[in-house]
Amino acid sequence: MPATSSASTDRRTDPAFQAFFLLRTVFTVAPIAFGLDKFTNILTEWTIYLAPWINDIVPGNADQAMKAVGVIEIAAGLLVAFAPRIGAYVVALWLAGIIVNLLTLQDFHDVALRDFGLLVGALALGRLAAVYADRSPVSTS
């Protein structure tokens, strides 16, 4: 049964709000976690995912480039946390760039496909944020 738009409706029980909350949480935590890992390489050696042509056009070496990527990812996660209407689309664009990078490498088409799914999720977050991104946990419509 769809949630009503009365002021007494608690959005926490609204399935669409729950989807917004889940996506906002994931697209906040994941970019921050992966961004921080660019400095430690605990999860993986991130430089293997950097296409040589990109490494050739960015200043410094691959490790420095991935640290810059980490800073951008942390900022994108924070943007989703504090301004999801904007942050969701920034993350979607960032994922599009990652996909282009991965498609130019030989061995990471599966990761590119996964990132395409994440891109679609970020776009869904952006659409849901248009409705649910205000600060009130209770509907005021």
Rank of each mutant, 00 (worst) to 15 (best):
R85T: 10
I32L: 12
P137T: 05
I42E: 03
A68H: 09
A122V: 12
A112V: 05
A30C: 06
Y89E: 07
I74N: 08
V26P: 00
A19K: 10
T44E: 12
L103A: 00
T104V: 02
I57Q: 13
G70D: 04
F17K: 10
F17E: 01
L95W: 07
F17N: 07
L36E: 07
P15I: 06
H109R: 15
T9Q: 12
V131H: 13
L50Y: 08
F116T: 15
V80F: 08
F27V: 05
T28A: 06
P2G: 06
W46Q: 09
Q18E: 03
S136V: 00
V91P: 06
I57Y: 08
G117Y: 06
L78S: 08
R12M: 05
F27A: 08
M66L: 14
R24K: 15
M1D: 08
G60E: 13
S5I: 01
V138T: 11
S141N: 12
V111N: 03
A30T: 13
R135M: 04
A19N: 09
A124H: 06
R85F: 03
D37S: 04
V29C: 04
R24S: 13
L50F: 11
L113P: 01
T104Q: 14
P137H: 00
A75F: 12
K67N: 15
S5H: 14
L93T: 12
W46H: 12
G35H: 06
L50R: 13
I72C: 10
D134I: 03
F20C: 11
A124R: 08
V100S: 07
S6P: 00
G117S: 07
R24T: 01
P137G: 02
T140S: 10
P137V: 01
A19E: 03
N41W: 02
W46G: 05
T44P: 04
L95A: 05
R127W: 10
R12I: 04
I48E: 13
G60M: 13
L23N: 05
I98A: 15
F39R: 04
A76M: 09
L23E: 02
A88K: 03
I99Y: 02
Y132W: 13
L102D: 06
D63S: 11
L95H: 08
G121N: 11
V100E: 11
P2I: 07
D134T: 10
I57R: 12
L119N: 00
R85Q: 14
L113F: 15
F39Y: 14
L22G: 11
E45I: 10
L118W: 12
A112Y: 11
I72D: 05
A76Y: 02
A51R: 13
Q106P: 01
T47E: 14
T13C: 04
T47A: 05
L125Q: 03
R24W: 07
K38W: 06
P52Q: 09
T25R: 13
F20N: 07
I72S: 15
G97S: 09
A7K: 14
W94R: 00
L95P: 08
W53Q: 15
L22E: 00
L125K: 03
L50G: 04
V100P: 08
R24I: 06
S141T: 14
